[in-house]
Computed example of a mutant assay.
Amino acid sequence: MKKLWDIIIKESIEIRYKDFSSLPENINGLYIYDQRLGPLIILDKGLHHSYRLHKCVLAEEIGHFYTAARTNVLTVHTSANLQTMESQDERKAGQWATDFLIPDKEFVKALEAGCRSCFELAEYFDVTEWFMYRKLDFLKMCFRRTKDSLP
């Protein structure tokens, strides 16, 4: 978590906590660019009670900062193109977050250390199982692209 806070300080990202419990969707964090404040991450205050989820959500929101989100989740998208762009933005931020918290070289070390299940890997990296599954999905997409490009 310290590395994430170091990024926040270095990049002058404003962090705010709000109660998201009344929102209709299961939202834990938002990244927006505010004209006055600059980059702003708003997190659900309930994350204070779940260290691993807090860490994973914060990493993904920082991922939005680094991958330059092109859409605004606060706007309803009626266009298929905008929905596709939003999906791509989420994938890029998730990729950044999983690569940051679970670097590929460290992932290989975890496998060599005997981690076999998603639960064991999540424990090893101190992330949620859902986040670990996401990393595995990104790796699967990477291997699929690599396999398709081989002669």
Rank of each mutant, 00 (worst) to 15 (best):
L47Q: 03
A97Y: 11
E129Y: 00
G29K: 04
D34I: 04
I7G: 06
Y124W: 13
I9G: 00
S12I: 00
N26K: 15
A93N: 09
F143M: 13
S79P: 02
I42R: 01
F100T: 07
K45M: 11
I15T: 10
R70T: 15
R91H: 07
L136K: 06
Q88G: 00
Y17V: 01
L101S: 07
K10E: 15
F107C: 04
V108E: 13
F143S: 09
Y66K: 09
T84C: 09
T71Y: 04
F119E: 14
G114V: 08
M1D: 13
Y31W: 13
K3D: 15
H77W: 06
E14R: 13
I9R: 15
Q88K: 11
Y133D: 07
I13F: 06
C115R: 04
V57E: 02
D44M: 04
L111Q: 11
P24G: 04
Y17C: 00
S50I: 01
D34K: 03
Q95A: 10
K3H: 09
S87A: 15
L53Y: 10
C56D: 15
R145Q: 14
N28I: 02
K2F: 09
I102E: 01
D19I: 03
S12F: 01
P151M: 02
M141R: 14
V73F: 11
I7H: 03
I9F: 05
V108R: 12
E120I: 06
T84M: 14
N81W: 10
S22A: 13
V127P: 04
I7F: 08
H49T: 07
T67A: 07
E120C: 06
C115L: 00
F125P: 10
Y33M: 08
R116Y: 02
D89M: 09
P39F: 02
H49D: 14
A69E: 11
A110Q: 06
E129A: 07
I41G: 07
D99I: 03
L150Y: 12
W130C: 00
R116M: 10
D126R: 11
W130S: 12
L150F: 13
Y124G: 01
R144W: 03
T75P: 00
L101A: 07
E60N: 05
R16S: 05
V76L: 09
T84I: 11
K140P: 00
G114N: 02
I13M: 05
T75V: 15
A93V: 10
A80D: 12
R36G: 01
I13W: 08
A113V: 01
H77D: 09
L101R: 11
F138V: 03
A68R: 15
A80V: 11
F65W: 10
T128R: 03
Y124T: 01
R91N: 10
V127Q: 09
I32D: 08
N28M: 13
T98H: 02
I32T: 14
A69V: 06
M141C: 05
G94N: 12
Y124L: 01
D89I: 10
A97E: 11
E123H: 11
E129P: 02
A113M: 09
T128D: 05
F119T: 13
Y66V: 06
E90I: 08
R145K: 15
D89K: 08
I32Y: 07
G114S: 05
N81V: 12
Y33H: 14
I62C: 07
L43E: 02
E11L: 05
Y31I: 08
